[in-house]
């Protein structure tokens, strides 16, 4: 699974940056064509839902999606991230 931020819905409040326990979001740098600074993804392969949703068959964590006031975060079906890229940080 792949996490996607919908740039047409995001208003750039950065609450996802605040609430994500894996810190996969970071504030964006430049405004898009709507003038919104959409957050960027920082090593999204660390996201638990991206990795484990298919395995467990349910949403894992999902706090960013629940918190996002603008319904801009969703997961898309995609090939899993390369396993070697998963770096668990202690």
């Amino acid at each position: 699974m792949k996490l996607v931020i919908d740039p047409r819905r995001c208003k750039g409040c950065n609450l996802c940056v605040k609430v994500c326990p894996y810190r996969i979001f970071r504030p964006g740098r430049r405004p898009n064509e709507r003038g919104v600074v959409v957050p960027e993804l920082d090593r999204p392969e660390r996201c638990a839902n991206c990795r484990l949703r298919r395995l467990y068959g349910r949403t894992i964590c999902g706090v960013c999606q629940l918190t996002c006031p603008d319904q801009a975060i969703r997961w898309e079906e995609e090939e899993a991230y390369e396993p070697r890229k998963v770096a668990v940080e202690y």
């Binding site: 819905r9 409040c13 918190t67 006031p69 603008d70 801009a72």
Partner: peptide
């Protein structure tokens, strides 16, 4: 109907 009319960072959407 999305995005909503709420301001940036409004908690209502949550």
């Amino acid at each position: 109907r999305l995005p909503t009319i709420f301001c940036v960072g409004c908690g209502n959407g949550t």
